[in-house]
Amino acid sequence: MADFYDQKKIILVTFGIILLISALFVPAAVFYPAKVVTITPEAEIVGTSFWSLLFGSAGMVLLAATLFMAALIEQRMKAWLLSAATAALGLVSIAFSLGDYYYMTNDGFTYNPPLSFNSSTYTWEEFERVEERLHKEDGTSSIESVAYYFRDGDMVEFSSGRIFEMHSSLVHRVEAAGGEFTRIQAQ
Rank of each mutant, 00 (worst) to 15 (best):
E128I: 00
S116P: 06
V13T: 04
V92Y: 10
W80R: 12
L20Y: 05
D154I: 02
M60T: 05
T110A: 09
L170Y: 05
S141H: 14
L24T: 09
S83V: 01
Q7T: 07
F164P: 07
I17Q: 07
K35G: 09
A70M: 11
G161S: 11
S49C: 07
L81A: 14
F109S: 03
T86R: 01
P33R: 08
S141Q: 15
L82E: 10
Y32F: 09
D3G: 13
A85R: 03
P114F: 06
F117V: 04
Y103M: 06
A58D: 01
F127Y: 11
D154H: 08
Y148L: 15
R133G: 04
P41H: 11
E180G: 01
R129C: 00
L115E: 14
T110Y: 06
P41I: 00
A43C: 12
N106K: 13
R183N: 10
S83G: 15
R173C: 00
R151K: 15
V146F: 09
E157W: 06
T182W: 10
S116N: 12
V37T: 11
L72M: 10
L20A: 15
S169Y: 14
V171R: 14
T182I: 15
R173A: 12
L67F: 10
L89Y: 11
Y5L: 12
I184E: 15
S49K: 01
D3C: 05
F164I: 05
S160I: 02
G179I: 02
R173W: 04
Q7L: 04
A70R: 10
M69T: 02
F50L: 10
W124H: 10
L82D: 02
A71R: 00
V26D: 04
V26Q: 06
Y5G: 04
P33L: 03
G179E: 02
W51S: 08
M60N: 10
L115V: 12
M166E: 14
S145M: 06
S97R: 05
T38Q: 13
V92M: 09
D152Q: 12
G179S: 09
L72A: 07
